[in-house]
């Protein structure tokens, strides 16, 4: 049976001692969707993401990611998702080709597939001429393309991105969103966190976590309407103000 949801979360909770970091969150992410996951510092985003990526076992509740259970199938989850963090996770003293080969190996691709994939990526990203250059020598925009591509080299159905554009200049930041759109166009689901509120508007749907809970989940337009706000920044402030000292 085909399931349209790539992530299904129901009553998911994580406690650390007496502190409830994530408090009964429930939501779904649809296949191919760009899903924005926002929240104030300390709202529980990181804890939620660590559970969804198989790095942390929940206290109670249920969740599946790409069809795998977050309690019992964490290794399968890790193999079937892509992950990209704030700092591009490329090895700066390896070359372009070496980085691609490295990540292909990490994700368990066969050598034949890695070779095919390497050629394909170099061609598509326009990096064939610099294939043997060290990462350190490449402009930021190129590094970014490559970091994204290595995060999805095993063609996962979903990729998690934790503040992928922090500190990046306004042009490169937009180029990065082009990559996200392209991937989404090819059917990859994108789960992304950001502190840039304008980027929230680029998502198909957005949720804003407050104090471990999910109170708001809608399209950017729907959220603005519901909270009578001009932009997502205003929605965020209205929602989060109660929760922040």
């Amino acid at each position: 049976m085909h399931n349209d949801n790539i992530i299904e979360v129901s009553g998911l909770t994580r406690k650390f001692g007496n502190f409830t970091a994530v408090d009964h969150i429930t939501f779904e992410v649809k296949r191919g969707e760009i899903f924005g996951f926002l929240g104030a510092n300390g709202a529980g985003k990181t804890t939620a993401i660590r559970m969804l990526t198989g790095l942390l076992i929940p206290s109670t509740g249920q969740a599946t990611v790409a069809g795998f259970d977050v309690f019992t199938q964490t290794e399968s989850i890790k193999k079937n998702i892509g992950y990209m963090s704030q700092k591009f996770s490329l090895y700066s003293d390896l070359t372009v080709v070496e980085n691609i080969r490295f990540y292909g190996g990490i994700y368990g691709l066969r050598s034949r597939d890695i070779r095919r994939k390497t050629d394909e990526l170099l061609e598509r990203l326009g990096l064939a001429d610099v294939r043997n250059r060290l990462i350190d020598d490449l402009p930021l925009g190129w590094k970014q393309k490559l970091a994204f591509s290595t995060a999805v080299i095993h063609e996962p159905a979903i990729v998690f991105m934790d503040e992928p554009t922090g500190g990046v200049d306004p042009i490169t930041r937009r180029q990065f969103w082009d990559l996200i759109y392209e991937a989404s166009d090819r059917g990859t689901t994108i789960f992304v966190t950001t502190h840039y509120m304008d980027e929230a508007e680029y998502c198909d749907r957005v949720t804003i976590m407050v104090d471990g809970r999910i109170d708001a989940l809608d399209t950017p337009g729907g959220l603005k309407k519901k909270y009578g706000a001009e932009d997502i920044d205003e929605v965020f402030v209205k929602l989060a103000r109660g929760g922040v000292a």
């Binding site: 104030a40 510092n41 500190g167 920044d233 965020f236 989060a240």
Partner: peptide
């Protein structure tokens, strides 16, 4: 304010 959420940034 780098890496700080929108509300704390305003404050």
């Amino acid at each position: 304010t780098t890496g700080v959420d929108a509300v704390s940034r305003r404050e």
